[in-house]
Write a protein that binds this DNA or RNA. Structure first.
Lengths: 183, 183
DNA sequence: TCGCTCATGTAATGGGTTACATGATTCA
DNA sequence: TGAATCATGTAACCCATTACATGAGCGA
């Protein structure tokens, strides 16, 4: 639920919808993201719910910003959500696996082409996640030094990204090897 | 896109919406699933598109079945989709990671409780995926022996499930160990 | 001059869940 | 007697993407 990601970022510091989107890309992009259009409509409905308030911040030479601030009700809602345990297993949809599952009629070569393309994609993502730490983290922390205590948890989620991509790569390599050996 | 999963199953054999849901649970459930209500509405719109046709199969003592058959247009659509390579990286949303990311104010113990609960959940899923092969596969194949050629690809997707859960467990164990060591 | 970044928003559409409605059979 | 399985469907709602609309400043 995007609402809680938004509340999470606003719990750090007041910011605009545009800011939230860039923070997301650089931090939770790995496991949570949203388009600007959705962020804007979500913020609007959150304001109606009383979870956030907004003020216009005029700017020269560029569009005015609408800066959102979390309310006490917003903080309470966020804390409640965070401390409610997840008891269900989340299924992650994967189109590649679906294509592979039904991929017999496509033939060996078509499947191998697609799997090798995925290999590139996931190698790249793994690199991104690995190189993420120094630059992005430091940028955030130098802006808001009081967030330094959060950094260890952020790091755990970044590590998940690296491990996920490593696993995906290993599986792709095994799958390619297996299909290559077929008649 | 559920449409293609549905076309995939119907490319094996004509079947009802109810059947599709149970096949899904037992085979692609790992990386693709849907509720009955969505399957029924999807089938209806696919029939309007000319991708499938349906006939009522009367039954005694239980509700009549609506059995769907894939059309030539449906097969063509499925093949086109399968052979179109995926060029984007799919982000998989994960609520647990989101909670952890913003979880500092919740405190060490609340986080550990949730992570340990996840450990149980993922251990269970890993076992399910590991034990999946013999029973379910054989059941399907004894019904439709001509599907035996698909079994190797199915097996690759099942292995993905096992590897994913093993990775998740490893990450959970590391995260728990790390948080335990914090003040 | 072309494309990128900054900046906000609405409208239309698609994808997915929850709730509602019905009803016989089978098994514990 | 109560729950699970079989079996289909609609309606309301939520979540998310794509497309549309606007427009200044900046760097290659």
């Amino acid at each position: 639920m995007l609402k809680y990601a938004v509340l999470g970022f606003l719990s750090y510091h007041p910011m605009s919808g545009y800011d939230i989107e860039s923070w997301m890309q650089a931090s939770t992009g790995n496991f949570w993201h949203a388009k600007l259009s959705q962020i804007y409509t979500t913020l609007k409905s959150m304001e109606a719910e009383g979870l956030v308030t907004s003020q216009i911040a005029p700017q020269e030479g560029r569009p005015d910003r609408r800066v959102y601030t979390i309310t006490e009700a917003g903080r309470a809602d966020l804390q409640m959500w965070i401390s409610t345990p997840l008891v269900e297993h989340e299924v992650k949809k994967d189109s590649l696996l679906l294509k592979l599952f039904f991929g017999l009629p496509a033939g060996k070569n078509a499947l191998l082409t697609q799997l090798r393309l995925q290999l590139d994609l996931h190698r790249q993502k793994k690199l991104e996640y690995e190189q993420n730490t120094p630059q992005e983290m430091v940028r955030f922390l130098s802006d808001q030094p009081e967030l330094v205590n959060h950094a260890q948890l952020w790091e755990l989620t970044r590590q998940f990204g690296v491990m996920y991509e490593a696993m995906y790569l290993q599986w792709l390599e095994e799958a390619i090897r297996f299909i290559e050996q077929q008649n």
